[in-house]
Design a protein around this nucleic acid. Structure first.
Lengths: 194, 194
DNA sequence: GTCTATAGAACGATAGAC
DNA sequence: GTCTATCGTTCTATAGAC
């Protein structure tokens, strides 16, 4: 009789795959992409090195999946904050989550990585932009542009503080400055030349 | 007697190297990193494919040099505009140069590329940040943070318009919106919640 | 009995230590 | 510059599910 996967073996396969993804996420959150070698991921997941390739065609594919899931978590959290408390809450949530998990934030925002993952990073920023665009005050004219500028501003301002070489920052002061920057940028005031 | 390079051969070597760099820049400016295969670069530079590796240890090293030079040009132009006309002029120069050379701007700002070049992109953004920080109005408190936010805002807002899949935009309207965004963000107004 | 999934060593390439 | 360690990936034998 030919071999056919059953519910039981399928569940095992999925569980092993999940362990691999979780192990990679944890390693990246602790030490960035450098720490997530295939051997290290396999060891932490409790599978053999070669077995990683039964679940993912390449390491890049694994990283893409890990990146996609982690970034989706961030987008969801920010979108929820935006719906609850508007732009200020969205910016604050974005920044506080990044500062609380600096190493992961660095991996998501700026750490150099395989181009396949970089492409995912573009999608990640687009998702943030769309979330902010939906929450902008009504008077804003080009909402997509303003939302992109906002995401770029917050993201880039955080790159320094979350970078491994970055000095320690006062979290509250940083968040306050970022929120103020965003609210001023979105205000209806006539801009004054400087 | 052992071979020793003369002035003449050294000049030839440098000239050939420059042609390779120029060819790579032109190909990237026309079709992004995809268009800059080593074979295509060599053909355009008028050298043999293998000769590229006489000047650069790897393709990544060549790309890093091209990226560094191209990004330095942009930083210099923006820094000059900042010194001449302040933040508004700096933002306008940044945006207009990007929109005039969209494909190159895309390559510099966002196109997924080898991690070695990504590292250069981080330096590129830091250089922009420092240039803006030096030109901020005196009342701005955390100048480094504000400058980073500004660079992120302008850069990210341009990613859509300069992307190969991006629709056509009204350049003047885009520039005006970006300058206004920046000036409001840097104003002394008390931010109003939204 | 037939076939898959897994483990773990082996391989060529490369990056970092010295 | 040389060398070693480690990387991503592939291969082969085996255990186990059907």
């Amino acid at each position: 009789m030919a071999y056919r996967p059953t519910e039981r073996t399928e569940a095992r396969r999925i569980a092993a795959r999940e362990r691999v993804v979780a192990a990679a996420r944890e390693l990246i959150a602790a030490g960035g992409y450098r720490a997530a070698s295939v051997a290290a991921v396999a060891r932490r997941a409790g599978v053999a090195t070669g077995s990683v390739y039964r679940h993912f065609p390449s390491k890049a594919d694994l990283l893409v999946e890990v990146f996609r899931r982690a970034s989706q978590r961030e987008v969801d959290a920010v979108a929820a904050a935006l719906a609850e408390g508007g732009v200020a809450a969205g910016v604050e949530t974005f920044a506080r989550r990044a500062l609380r998990g600096r190493r992961l934030a660095w991996a998501l925002l700026a750490e150099p990585v395989d181009p396949a993952v970089e492409a995912e990073r573009l999608a990640f920023r687009r998702a943030f932009r769309d979330a902010f665009a939906a929450a902008l005050p009504a008077h804003v004219a080009d909402r997509e542009l303003a939302a992109a500028a906002l995401v770029g501003a917050v993201g880039e301002a955080l790159v320094g503080p979350v970078s491994p070489t970055g000095a320690g920052h006062d979290e509250d002061a940083l968040v306050a400055a970022l929120v103020a920057f965003a609210l001023r940028a979105l205000s209806q005031e006539e801009p004054v030349p400087c």
